[in-house]
Computed example of a mutant assay.
Amino acid sequence: MEAEKDTEKESEIWYAMRATYRREPDAMRLLEKENLGCFVPMQYKISIKKGKKIRVLVPVVHNLLFVHARPSELKRIKSQVAYLQYITDTRSGQKIIIPDNEMQRFIAVAGSYSDHLLYFQPDELNLSKGTKVRITGGDFEGQEGIFLKVKGSRDRRVVIAIQGVIAVAMATIHPNLIEVIK
């Protein structure tokens, strides 16, 4: 009973995690069975099966998943599953924990599975060169991000980054639908 009381005091946190050997689908099923939140950024890719082109939904970055859980619940599950690992900040060695609002923004965009999204590793973008903006219309109205030039695109794009883990650049958004945040 004591352990249960402690768990109730804890709040759920978003963790950046790795499921080694491309086991993110297994990890997702396990976490869902345990009623824990999880999110794997996915995107459609064209693949050839028996000579036919088909669209398949695949993870954007293999082994990456985000888990929404109380620390003690995650610790319990992690102790049973060797392939689930925390992603840690290379400088501090701390587990990477993502603020709820940042994660909600990322899911709102990445969860659309759009073919027009571009994904980047953190070291591929210099976010400090961009401008902080808010989208004022369209599908992503209300979302905030950094407006900057990204490779693979002629135009500047709004980028939503999960610090030290991954960044997603939205499809080109008309400048009339973007306002600068002071």
Rank of each mutant, 00 (worst) to 15 (best):
145 G>V: 08
22 R>N: 11
63 N>T: 13
13 I>T: 12
20 T>L: 09
153 S>R: 12
114 S>A: 06
54 I>W: 07
49 K>G: 09
31 L>V: 01
105 R>M: 09
89 D>C: 03
155 D>Y: 15
174 H>D: 14
64 L>E: 09
2 E>R: 01
153 S>N: 14
79 S>P: 07
60 V>N: 04
90 T>Y: 13
41 P>E: 01
53 K>C: 07
124 E>W: 05
165 V>A: 02
90 T>G: 12
93 G>Y: 12
153 S>G: 11
12 E>R: 10
85 Q>H: 14
165 V>H: 00
143 Q>H: 14
51 G>H: 08
165 V>I: 05
169 A>I: 00
137 G>V: 05
32 E>H: 10
82 A>F: 11
157 R>P: 01
167 A>T: 00
76 R>A: 08
156 R>K: 15
121 Q>H: 15
179 E>F: 02
90 T>L: 11
66 F>Q: 04
29 R>P: 00
92 S>I: 06
25 P>N: 04
14 W>M: 00
133 V>W: 06
129 K>W: 11
45 K>G: 05
49 K>M: 12
166 I>W: 02
95 K>G: 02
161 A>Q: 05
14 W>Q: 00
70 R>T: 04
5 K>N: 08
7 T>W: 11
116 H>I: 02
147 F>H: 15
50 K>Q: 15
107 I>H: 07
23 R>W: 03
21 Y>E: 15
6 D>A: 10
120 F>C: 05
103 M>W: 00
26 D>A: 02
93 G>V: 08
60 V>T: 10
89 D>N: 11
43 Q>W: 01
123 D>V: 05
71 P>E: 11
174 H>M: 11
80 Q>K: 14
7 T>M: 14
120 F>A: 07
72 S>D: 03
83 Y>A: 03
130 G>L: 07
164 G>H: 05
87 I>K: 06
62 H>L: 10
167 A>F: 04
84 L>H: 03
164 G>Q: 05
5 K>G: 04
35 N>I: 01
83 Y>S: 06
124 E>G: 04
